[in-house]
Amino acid sequence: MIINNLKLIREKKKISQSELAALLEVSRQTINGIEKNKYNPSLQLALKIAYYLNTPLEDIFQ
């Protein structure tokens, strides 16, 4: 099972779900679904998340 630290990292960087969704060009519901482990992001989306949060991919999804 993948450990998902997206919410923790996003909140630590003081970025809202809506702000991150806008940067990634996805819906806020997509971010919410990823954070609640209801949706697994594509590799492309996971890499974009890591880029915009300036955090290694391995720290977000373990």
Rank of each mutant, 00 (worst) to 15 (best):
residue 17 Q to A: 08
residue 62 Q to R: 11
residue 37 N to V: 04
residue 26 V to H: 01
residue 57 L to M: 12
residue 62 Q to A: 12
residue 15 I to R: 03
residue 33 G to W: 14
residue 8 L to A: 15
residue 51 Y to M: 11
residue 7 K to F: 05
residue 24 L to Q: 00
residue 1 M to G: 12
residue 24 L to P: 00
residue 21 A to N: 02
residue 10 R to F: 05
residue 35 E to F: 02
residue 52 Y to C: 08
residue 58 E to K: 12
residue 49 I to M: 06
residue 54 N to V: 05
residue 11 E to D: 08
residue 10 R to M: 08
residue 7 K to R: 14
residue 28 R to G: 05
residue 51 Y to L: 08
residue 46 A to W: 14
residue 45 L to V: 05
residue 5 N to I: 07
residue 11 E to M: 13
residue 61 F to Y: 04
residue 28 R to T: 14
residue 33 G to H: 14
residue 51 Y to W: 12
residue 22 A to N: 11
residue 56 P to G: 05
residue 3 I to Y: 08
residue 20 L to W: 02
residue 27 S to C: 06
residue 42 S to M: 04
residue 55 T to H: 06
residue 48 K to L: 09
residue 46 A to Y: 03
residue 46 A to R: 12
residue 52 Y to R: 04
residue 54 N to H: 09
residue 55 T to I: 07
residue 1 M to E: 10
residue 46 A to P: 04
residue 58 E to I: 10
residue 60 I to S: 01
residue 53 L to A: 02
residue 23 L to W: 14
residue 45 L to P: 00
residue 25 E to R: 13
residue 50 A to F: 03
residue 26 V to K: 01
residue 34 I to C: 02
residue 9 I to N: 03
residue 13 K to P: 02
residue 4 N to K: 03
residue 14 K to E: 08
residue 41 P to Y: 04
residue 60 I to M: 05
residue 12 K to H: 11
residue 36 K to P: 02
residue 18 S to L: 11
residue 28 R to S: 11
residue 51 Y to D: 09
residue 40 N to A: 14
residue 2 I to K: 11
residue 58 E to Q: 11
residue 8 L to E: 15
residue 13 K to V: 07
residue 1 M to N: 12
residue 7 K to H: 07
residue 39 Y to R: 09
residue 5 N to D: 04
residue 45 L to D: 03
residue 31 I to R: 00
residue 59 D to E: 14
residue 1 M to R: 11
residue 2 I to G: 10
residue 20 L to D: 00
residue 53 L to P: 03
residue 51 Y to K: 09
residue 8 L to F: 12
residue 39 Y to N: 06
residue 56 P to H: 06
residue 46 A to E: 04
residue 61 F to L: 04
residue 62 Q to G: 14
residue 39 Y to K: 07
residue 16 S to H: 04
residue 47 L to Y: 08
residue 23 L to G: 08
residue 36 K to H: 12
residue 17 Q to E: 04
residue 51 Y to Q: 09
residue 57 L to I: 13
residue 36 K to C: 11
residue 45 L to F: 05
residue 54 N to T: 06
residue 37 N to Y: 09
residue 19 E to S: 10
residue 43 L to W: 13
residue 44 Q to S: 13
residue 50 A to Y: 02
residue 14 K to G: 15
residue 52 Y to S: 05
residue 39 Y to L: 13
residue 48 K to V: 04
residue 25 E to N: 14
residue 24 L to K: 01
residue 37 N to R: 10
residue 62 Q to L: 11
residue 14 K to R: 12
residue 36 K to M: 15
residue 3 I to D: 08
residue 23 L to P: 00
residue 8 L to W: 08
residue 55 T to L: 07
residue 45 L to K: 00
residue 4 N to C: 07
residue 53 L to G: 00
residue 28 R to Y: 09
residue 7 K to C: 08
residue 58 E to V: 09
residue 25 E to H: 14
residue 52 Y to I: 14
residue 59 D to H: 11
residue 7 K to N: 04
residue 40 N to K: 15
residue 58 E to Y: 10
residue 22 A to G: 11
residue 4 N to P: 05
residue 11 E to F: 06
residue 56 P to A: 08
residue 38 K to E: 14
residue 23 L to Y: 13
residue 20 L to N: 00
residue 13 K to H: 11
residue 21 A to W: 02
residue 47 L to A: 09
residue 38 K to W: 14
residue 21 A to F: 03
residue 44 Q to H: 11
residue 12 K to M: 14
residue 2 I to S: 10
residue 15 I to V: 10
residue 58 E to D: 09
residue 4 N to Q: 04
residue 40 N to H: 14
residue 50 A to H: 03
residue 44 Q to K: 14
residue 7 K to D: 03
residue 4 N to A: 03
residue 15 I to K: 05
residue 1 M to A: 12
residue 15 I to C: 07
residue 9 I to V: 10
residue 21 A to I: 03
residue 10 R to C: 09
residue 48 K to W: 06
residue 15 I to N: 01
residue 52 Y to F: 14
residue 9 I to E: 04
residue 19 E to Y: 09
residue 55 T to F: 06
residue 48 K to P: 00
residue 55 T to C: 08
residue 50 A to K: 02
residue 59 D to Q: 14
residue 46 A to I: 06
residue 21 A to E: 02
residue 44 Q to A: 14
residue 33 G to V: 10
residue 47 L to V: 11
residue 14 K to Q: 13
residue 11 E to T: 11
residue 42 S to D: 09
residue 27 S to F: 03
residue 59 D to F: 10
residue 41 P to D: 03
residue 13 K to D: 02
residue 40 N to I: 15
residue 10 R to A: 04
residue 54 N to D: 15
residue 38 K to H: 13
residue 59 D to I: 11
residue 53 L to V: 03
residue 46 A to Q: 15
residue 32 N to P: 01
residue 29 Q to D: 14
residue 57 L to Q: 04
residue 42 S to L: 04
